[in-house]
Structure formats: C-alpha cells, structure tokens
C-alpha cells in the first residue's frame, strides 16, 4: 500500500524521532528507507512486548517514538502495552499491521484477522482502520495528535497475504 519513502515522509511530518519495531512481510519492506532516514532512528527489538517498553522509555526521555508491529505482536505484547498505555497513560502512537485483512489466500480463516479488532476493543484502544493511501493525512494527524490529546493512537494498516 505505502512505500518506504511514503512512510518515512509521514513519520517525519508527524515529528516521530524513533521507530521501535518487529517487522512483518509488509512492514519489513520499509526497512531500507527507515534505516536511511536522518530524522528517524530505527530500533529493532526481539519481541513486541519490548517495543512498548523501549518506546515508553524513549518518551519519558523526551523523544517521540512510534511502535510498529504486526497484530500477532499485539497479542504477544499485552502486558507491556497495558502497563505503558493504561498504568502510566503514555500517549504513544503506533502502527499495527492487520494480517490477512485484504487477502486470506495464504491462511484461510486466519485467527490473527479474527481477533485483532476484538482485542483492540478489549484493551480499550482507539484505532483507525487504514484501507487505502488516500488516508495518508489522517494517519499523520493521528500520530501527531497523541501528544496534544494525551492519548495513544493505533493505526491499523490492512495487509495482504501473510
């Protein structure tokens, strides 16, 4: 949907300083552009729970991080995300890849697709489903708005095959 250059442009426009990620096959295509950016530092963690905690530390240190993971990583990282977003109420932006939303041919009946939105709702997280590139400005606005509103935002990016 978006190219690496598109994403770097959107992140930069939103004032993001660090991307903390575990890539999937869609997000991973942006790696070269993210690493090449002079304005954004890419931090690769080993598991998604770490991503929320590293981003929290960055935020407490004055940076403006974003968490970038797949929805399967959302499932993995519940305890860490709960602590950061609900206990400490840190207004962290995120981008979560929505596996199989656009195409289930690899994994018919993919339970990652079945449970993503119910899980986001259960965690009481506001999210915006992104289906097309025309929603670009909406994404930038959501990420930028976290600091002003004091609330986290989740950009849920529809992905194709797993």
């Amino acid at each position: 949907m978006f190219s690496g250059a598109d994403i770097v442009g959107m992140l930069t426009e939103a004032g993001i300083t660090h991307v903390v990620w575990v890539p999937d096959s869609t997000l991973g295509k942006w790696e070269n552009e993210l690493r090449a950016s002079r304005d954004i530092r890419l931090i690769t963690v080993c598991r998604e729970g770490e991503a929320w905690a590293v981003a929290a530390g960055l935020y407490l240190g004055g940076a403006r991080p974003l968490v970038m993971i797949q929805c399967t990583g959302l499932f993995e990282s519940g305890d860490s995300m709960r602590n950061v977003l609900h206990d400490f109420r840190l207004p962290l932006p995120s981008l979560i890849g929505y596996r199989s939303y656009l195409n289930e041919s690899t994994l018919p009946g993919d339970t990652a697709k079945v449970y993503t939105e119910p899980i986001l709702k259960a965690w009481n997280l506001d999210y915006r489903l992104i289906l097309e590139t025309s929603q670009r400005d909406e994404i930038v606005s959501l990420w930028r708005g976290c600091e002003a509103t004091g609330r986290p935002s989740v950009v849920l990016l529809a992905e194709g095959r797993a």
Binding site: G49, A56, L60, D79
Partner: peptide, 13 residues
C-alpha cells in the same frame, strides 16, 4: 520490561 524501559531512556538521553 524494566530493562527495556531503561534502554529507551538511555537512548533518548
């Protein structure tokens, strides 16, 4: 996650 939290702080500062 405390060590990851501290890592973020160290990178920011």
């Amino acid at each position: 996650q405390s060590c990851s939290l501290g890592l973020g702080m160290a990178l920011a500062q």
